[in-house]
Simulated scan of single mutants.
Amino acid sequence: MKRDLFKWTKSIAVCVLFSSTAFSQEEHLLITTPQVKISYVRGVCDVETGKQAYQFAFLKIENLTNANLHTGFNIVVQYDEGCAGCNGSDESLYYLSLTPNQVFTADCGTDEKSKIYLRNPNFSGAWNFQELRIENLVVE
């Protein structure tokens, strides 16, 4: 009985460790200039009631200056199976105005452009995320 309790406790501890590591708040730097820094963290959002949460990348955009900035860029999501936003189309364009030294951080409640869909674990044919890129950055 004691041995079974120890194995059960050990199994739970390992699961908690791996699940928190899989979606830790580790920040991934995408691009930095003297004016702006763009990074992201991975996370999950409940999208469908009773289903596993979807996986997203939440953009973090920092104005590194003491002036108002307007920035635009394409968001490219590379998967093992293909690419979303690789053609530089209007669908992948994102624009944001930032006040001096503002830090914008996306979350589950923000718009779809700054909360980037990565994977739906409920769909067996879901593509496998590789990397996120910023292309065609314009800062004014």
Rank of each mutant, 00 (worst) to 15 (best):
V44M: 13
C86I: 02
L69T: 05
L69P: 00
R119W: 07
T105M: 13
T110Q: 12
S24A: 02
A13H: 06
L132W: 02
L96W: 10
G43Y: 02
L59E: 04
E81M: 01
R42H: 05
E26H: 06
L96T: 12
D4W: 14
L69R: 00
K51L: 08
E27W: 04
F123I: 13
I116Y: 04
S92W: 14
F73R: 01
I61P: 06
A57V: 04
A106L: 03
F58R: 06
R119G: 04
T9V: 08
Y95C: 10
D80G: 07
S89I: 06
N120D: 12
A22F: 13
I12E: 08
S114H: 13
T105G: 08
V41W: 00
S39H: 03
G85E: 06
I116A: 03
T21E: 11
Y94I: 11
A84F: 07
P100F: 12
L118P: 02
E27H: 03
G109M: 12
P34N: 07
Q25P: 10
M1F: 15
V47H: 14
N128D: 14
W127N: 05
I31T: 04
E81H: 03
R119T: 01
T9P: 11
L137W: 06
Q130K: 11
E48F: 08
Y54S: 10
A106Q: 05
N122Y: 04
S11L: 14
N68H: 12
N101I: 06
T65M: 08
R42A: 00
I134F: 01
Y54N: 09
R133G: 01
D107K: 07
N101E: 14
T33C: 12
V76D: 01
F18K: 01
Y79E: 01
Q102L: 03
D90W: 10
L132Q: 00
